[in-house]
């Protein structure tokens, strides 16, 4: 599917798009952080590299929820290094959760497109130019990274986690027929007004929040493009995938099944 999309626009028209649009379009990256002192400088460095190499106008909005490990201090240093017009700090006092972090960050975003990603290095900024190209190709409202299609994949997952992930994805596809292959991933590009509308509508938390965003998007007839991504599990910091997560995922899935 991805390749048929890619072959539709001729090389010339694509080049024209790339020359014309980067100057008008601005991309705001929302980076929610909680205890990402190790990762934050690295992800910001990679973001700056990726954006400046492809000549894209951008800003990075860091939403730190009072991390006890001093993430905020590192963020302030990064603001000094890269400039307050590129790195925007919009911290909050305490841990209030991811969903509200996005809302908070979006209030301060000046771009017309929003990119959401994790700060733990599992989402690599090198894919962002591909997201942007994809979005322009199909004039999509949303472009979602996918681990389950084409060259997409994961690194650092054991067999158990792969089975859970593939199994959960299969059940979700059967029950919700959402029109996108990676529902729990959170590496996505949105038109700003689309994200605003979706966030208003979404009520769930955690993994289910990402899933609900796509399901609501389908309900509202928004178009979704997909780009295969490699997901490298976090190198620094704690990872959590416990029984709790699975139970709340199933609950959320059934809720969406019954209500959408």
């Amino acid at each position: 599917m991805a390749s048929s999309e890619a072959s539709r626009s001729s090389p010339r028209s694509r080049r024209e798009l790339e020359v014309r649009n980067p100057r008008q379009d601005k991309y705001s990256v929302l980076l929610p952080t909680y205890n990402e002192r190790e990762n934050l400088p690295l992800i910001v460095w990679l973001l700056v590299k990726s954006f400046s190499e492809s000549g894209i106008n951008y800003e990075v909005i860091i939403i730190d929820d009072g991390s006890p490990d001093g993430t905020r201090d590192v963020a302030e240093q990064l603001e000094k290094i890269y400039g307050a017009d590129r790195i925007l700090l919009r911290p909050r006092e305490k841990k209030l959760g991811l969903g509200t972090a996005y809302i908070h960050g979006m209030k301060h975003a000046t771009g017309n497109y929003i990119i959401i990603m994790d700060a733990d290095l599992s989402h690599h900024p090198k894919f962002i130019p591909e997201f942007i190209r994809k979005q322009k190709e199909g004039n999509f409202d949303i472009v979602s990274g996918t681990r389950y299609k084409g060259s997409g994949g994961v690194y650092g997952w054991d067999l158990k986690r792969k089975i859970i992930s593939r199994g959960a994805n299969f059940i979700t596809q059967i029950l919700l027929r959402p029109g996108a292959s990676d529902l729990t991933g959170s590496f996505r590009l949105y038109r700003k007004e689309v994200l605003q509308k979706l966030i208003e509508k979404c009520v769930s938390k955690g993994y289910v929040f990402q899933m609900e965003m796509i399901v609501r998007a389908r309900q509202l007839n928004y178009t979704i493009g997909e780009v295969p991504i490699s997901f490298v599990d976090r190198v620094y910091g704690e990872s959590k995938l416990g029984g709790n997560e699975i139970v709340s995922f199933l609950k959320g899935l059934l809720t969406l099944f019954a209500t959408t």
Partner: peptide
Amino acid sequence: VGYRVATFHDCEDA
């Protein structure tokens, strides 16, 4: 599901 688990890409290069 078994097939997809078995063919899940391991992104060593990445």
